[in-house]
C-alpha cells in the first residue's frame, strides 16, 4: 500500500496541520518508507487474538461524586493567548 498525495493532504487537514505542496510531497515519501516498515505486521496471522490496549489487565477505578476543584480560571487564563471577561476568544465559530 502507499499513500497518495491527496491522502497526505487529507490527513493533514484532519489533523489541522497546514501543509504546503512541497511539504506534502516530502512527507509522502517519508510516510511511505515508514509504512513499508509497518506493513511487516501483515505477515503474521492474528486470527483469534484479542487486541491489547494496556500492559495489564486491570479495570477502571471509580471516583466518588464529590466536588474537589475550586475556581482557578484567573491562573489558567494568565497563560491563554486571548481572553476577555473570563472567556477564551477564538475566530468566529460558525454553526
Amino acid at each position: 500500500m502507499s499513500l497518495s498525495l491527496p491522502e497526505v493532504k487529507r490527513i493533514a487537514w484532519l489533523a489541522r496541520i497546514e501543509i504546503t505542496d512541497a511539504e506534502a510531497a516530502a512527507a509522502q515519501g517519508q510516510l511511505n518508507d515508514i509504512f513499508k516498515l509497518i506493513e511487516q505486521m501483515q505477515s503474521v496471522d492474528t486470527g483469534g487474538v484479542a487486541p491489547m490496549a494496556h500492559g495489564q489487565d486491570v479495570v477502571q477505578r471509580l471516583r466518588e461524586d464529590r466536588v474537589t476543584e475550586t475556581d482557578q480560571h484567573a491562573i489558567y487564563q494568565a497563560i491563554a493567548p486571548q481572553v476577555e471577561n473570563g472567556l477564551y476568544l477564538v475566530p468566529k465559530v460558525i454553526e
Binding site: 486571548q82 476577555e84 476568544l89
Partner: peptide
C-alpha cells in the same frame, strides 16, 4: 466579542 467567539468551558 468584536467579531470573535467567546468560549466558556
Amino acid at each position: 466579542f468584536h467579531g470573535l467567539s467567546g468560549i466558556d468551558l
